[in-house]
């Protein structure tokens, strides 16, 4: 009970921290805390495999990607070069709409409460976290992933492949960058200096 509220406070606080920092590196740190707390929350919901991949993939892979990009683009501590703010007054309507939508969502949830979670019963399918072959365990998840959900699983592989190709196309050097003008036209073969000069007679 208290664990949930503790994690909830950490989640909300780290989320707000993430979106309010000037420097993206601090945001990454906030996001890391957020993800770790979320992983813990997953464990309380019997989703142990998801808790693990939340740490491994999100914290380990995706956040590292962010950090790499930040390192690539700037020193990582200062603000990015920013141009003029073209929508200076967007914050007020955005926050207002956000609050309204949030209010309606909470209102809708409150209309039909779900009630308490079903209790843990060690003898049933719902077992303790860490037990193999109970709901949410690695065994349970794996069986589902490779039997009934095999097609979506294969599709994820396809999505990742498309993403890889897309990234290479967008950020790779293969595409000429006209505004930077780094690629000077190569001299034609006839204009190139011969590698071996014929010895003078």
């Amino acid at each position: 009970m208290s664990l949930f509220y503790l994690l909830a406070v950490i989640l909300i606080a780290s989320a707000i921290f993430t979106i309010t920092q000037k420097s993206p590196v601090y945001s990454v740190v906030g996001l890391l805390v957020n993800f770790l707390a979320l992983a813990a929350l997953y464990f309380t919901l019997n989703a142990e495999f998801l808790g693990v991949i939340q740490i491994v993939i999100y914290s380990g892979a995706i956040l590292m990607l962010f950090v790499f990009v930040i390192a690539l683009l700037s020193s990582g501590v200062g603000p990015f070069r920013a141009g003029p703010n073209r929508l200076p007054r967007i914050a007020a309507p955005a926050l207002l709409t956000t609050l309204v939508a949030f209010g309606f969502l909470i209102f809708g949830i409150a209309q039909r409460p779900f009630g308490p979670l079903p209790p843990h019963r060690p003898t049933s399918f719902l077992g303790n976290v860490g037990d193999p072959n109970v709901f949410g365990s690695v065994g349970d998840f794996g069986v589902a992933l490779f039997t009934v959900q095999l097609l979506p699983f294969e599709v994820t592989a396809f999505i990742l492949m498309v993403a890889v190709i897309g990234v290479v196309l967008i950020a790779g050097d293969a595409v000429p960058q006209p505004t930077l003008g780094r690629h000077r036209p190569q001299k034609r073969a006839a204009e190139r200096e011969p590698i071996l000069k014929a010895p003078a007679p």
């Binding site: 709409t97 309606f104 809708g108």
Partner: peptide, 28 residues
């Protein structure tokens, strides 16, 4: 059609808010 991503995001948010409001009111 401002070309600004943030204004598009706001537009989407307004639409989302409408959907949420609709379903919340239907549910009630």
């Amino acid at each position: 059609q401002t070309g600004l991503v943030r204004s598009y995001a706001l537009t989407i948010l307004v639409g989302t808010a409408c959907f949420i409001a609709y379903f919340a009111l239907i549910g009630s």
